[in-house]
Simulated scan of single mutants.
Amino acid sequence: MKKHMLSLVVLTFMTIASVKAQSGLLHFGLKAGANLGKIDGEGYKSGFNLGYHIGGFAQVNFHKGFGVQGELVFSSATVKTTSDFSEIYQLDNLNDANDKKIKMNYLSVPILANIPLGTNRIKLQLGPQFSALVSDKNVFEGVDDAFNGGDVSGVAGLWIQLPIVNISARYIVGFTDVRGKLADQDNWKNQSIQLGVGVTL
């Protein structure tokens, strides 16, 4: 998965660089902000938990403000299990799995369409996101590979482009089951809200 992610990043930015050479409509930037995450699945608490994200982006603007934006983002969020997690998944002698905080660190590549909403300053962003888990997956003692190493998600949000500064807000919902070898029941799907501020170079 990580090799595929690297290939995707290289291909995306080679394509963007080619467009830049032809059109000169390329913009780079940096961004950072809050990451509110949770896992939608039995045994996990339903509330969002605070984390952070940081990364960079490249925009290609086409006709009348419509464009494509690729990003490389490191995001970190904490998810929390319920007090009966070990009973739900029949984990004998694994009481440390109950009421446990788990830090989830992902390296993500969103590829988004930028759609202007009446003005080039405000854009609707839609597209897929491909993520690789970069933190240690052995989060429960005695259980290997509790989480899958990759995730495919859908992204929807808004991008506000001010002079130099940009503001973003987006909702990310996982399409794939991130549950690894821990159990043979239920699906675990990531959900997150990202609020960010950045600079456009």
Rank of each mutant, 00 (worst) to 15 (best):
S75H: 13
E42M: 03
D186K: 11
N138Q: 09
H4A: 10
L26W: 02
N61L: 14
G142M: 01
G198V: 05
E87Q: 13
S131Q: 10
P116T: 01
L107C: 08
F175Y: 06
A58V: 14
S131K: 04
Q59C: 02
K31F: 11
S46D: 15
G33P: 04
N35Y: 12
Q59A: 02
T81L: 02
K123D: 02
Y52A: 10
G47V: 05
K3V: 07
K45C: 00
Q59F: 02
H53M: 15
V9S: 02
E141C: 09
F147T: 02
P163A: 14
G174T: 04
G65K: 00
R121C: 12
G29A: 13
V134I: 14
G67S: 03
S18G: 14
N120A: 12
F13C: 10
T176E: 15
M5V: 00
S76Q: 10
N93Q: 09
D177L: 14
H27A: 07
G56V: 05
A97F: 10
L158E: 09
E87I: 13
S75V: 07
F140C: 07
D186W: 00
E71Y: 08
H63S: 11
Y171D: 03
G65W: 09
F62P: 01
S83H: 09
K80R: 00
N148I: 03
N120T: 13
K31E: 13
A169G: 15
F57M: 00
A169I: 09
I16W: 06
A34V: 14
V143I: 15
P163I: 13
H4T: 13
N138E: 11
S23A: 15
S23D: 14
K137M: 03
S168K: 12
N166S: 12
A156K: 05
N49A: 11
R121P: 04
N120W: 02
G47Q: 15
K31I: 12
S83Q: 15
N148E: 11
Q125R: 08
S7V: 04
L11C: 09
